[in-house]
Design a protein around this nucleic acid. Structure first.
Lengths: 249, 249
DNA sequence: TAGTGGTCTAGACCACCAT
DNA sequence: TGGTGGTCTAGACCACTAT
């Protein structure tokens, strides 16, 4: 198949990012199946008329995300476990489930304004998950705090229907680029029971709390995400120091 | 100051890894302080007689580790919070504490052989932490399982004195290169109380369970690490897709 | 032997920041 | 204006795998 999507060297998005998104989509849609090799670096170079360095940078993003692994002499092989979530980007999960016909679901549990140190703050509590047939399975419980001074009028949107990040991008010109999170454990509460069910016999839930920043290093939101135990939190680490050694020694 | 350490193009370790280790050590030792800029890419290129691409690859490792951040027009700035642990590489912590005169401590709690599906297995339970003055503060509780069929004689070493990974490297020629971990929450137990103390009022502990592989993709060990709540588990994420957008959209 | 990924060179142009 | 990092090109040589 010829490529329908071509790279645009004049776009504000780097070529390697454009290629990364193309390859990522194909993997998530199953066009390249698990265990298969994606086209070789030289093939991608010729197909898209770019340098191998640029191809490699695109693939490096996939490797970092855990979607592929590279083997010298063999190729670049698709290798991801089902619902292989990096913890911190729920977006990956959304893509994955959508690509499989599952429907991502967001339920707005609370929307209120609070008084913060720097003026009024919008508090948003959302449960997110997927709908498979008639059953909705909630996978995380996301509490966000956003400055209404910085984002005036943000409280009139309906975040059950619209993505928070999309509103921020379209109406305020802000995109998240970076996060600083701290992992912790939270005890079960009435809210977690309501969202995740009471059939779970766990001592606590995994929780990531912290700040999200824009590319210009402005604070976008303060967030706290509680994860369902149903969601396997996989973490891949590669000590990419060239010789197979942890940095420790 | 001239560089005492020079890069060796004939070494089996890539040039960018060599440079990465040099820079990393300087940062951890405080030679480049927090908030300072490290030498520019062009300076490093000239100093070490290598290409800017190679310099950039070395710095990319530091960025990935969260030790520095790069700003166009400004420079590469050292930016890490004290005890900024990426969860999964405790080695980083060891380096950090040692560079500050704190003494890393390992206490062997259990060493036993068990029967596994593929023959006898060495089980190793170690508590690790730091000693500051006369007080020892344990920060994690690490349980490892290793095949004695694969590593005959491993059970005769004293792992209170010797690093497991060092023994594996020196006596069996195996180095860990990659891990696949799953995050979970474990309830407090007699063991966690003994190691972390009983003054903690937490519903559970953060735990990473999974496998560690060598560069040739052979299973090295099965491991389960429980982290002390004292240890802030910082997780930095950057959506390095070029335009400041999570992969999700 | 042909093809793969891993490393490295030697340039180029650009956007951004400090001066 | 000069220096910084961000992107990209067009090669090269190597180690390893498949056949």
């Amino acid at each position: 198949m010829a490529d329908l999507i071509v790279l645009d060297p004049h776009a504000p998005i780097p070529l390697y990012t454009q290629l990364y998104r193309i390859l990522r989509l194909r993997i998530l849609e199953g066009q390249y199946a698990e265990g298969d090799a994606i086209p070789s670096e030289n093939v991608l170079r010729d197909e898209h008329g770019i340098t191998r360095s640029t191809v490699r940078k695109a693939i490096a993003l996939l490797v970092n995300e855990g979607l592929v692994r590279q083997f010298r002499g063999k190729g670049t092989i698709v290798s991801y476990a089902p619902i292989n979530n990096s913890v911190w980007n729920f977006g990956g999960f959304t893509d994955y489930s959508r690509a499989r016909g599952q429907r991502p679901v967001t339920s707005l549990l609370e929307q209120a304004t609070e008084d913060g140190a720097n003026g009024p703050v919008l508090k948003l509590v959302r449960a997110r998950g997927i709908a498979v047939e008639d059953v909705t399975l909630f996978l995380n419980l996301d509490t966000s705090w956003l400055s209404l001074k910085r984002y005036p009028g943000l409280d009139i949107f309906d975040f059950e229907k619209q993505s928070l990040y999309q509103v921020l991008r379209d109406h305020y010109g802000v995109s998240p680029a970076r996060s600083e999170l701290t992992l912790s454990v939270v005890a079960p509460s009435a809210l977690t029971t309501k969202v995740f069910g009471d059939g779970l016999d766990v001592p606590g839930f995994l929780c990531a709390t912290g700040d999200v920043f824009s590319s210009s290093d402005e604070l976008v939101e303060r967030t706290s995400v509680i994860y369902s135990p149903t969601l396997e939190m996989r973490v891949g680490t590669s000590w990419s120091t060239g010789n197979g050694q942890p940095p420790g020694a």
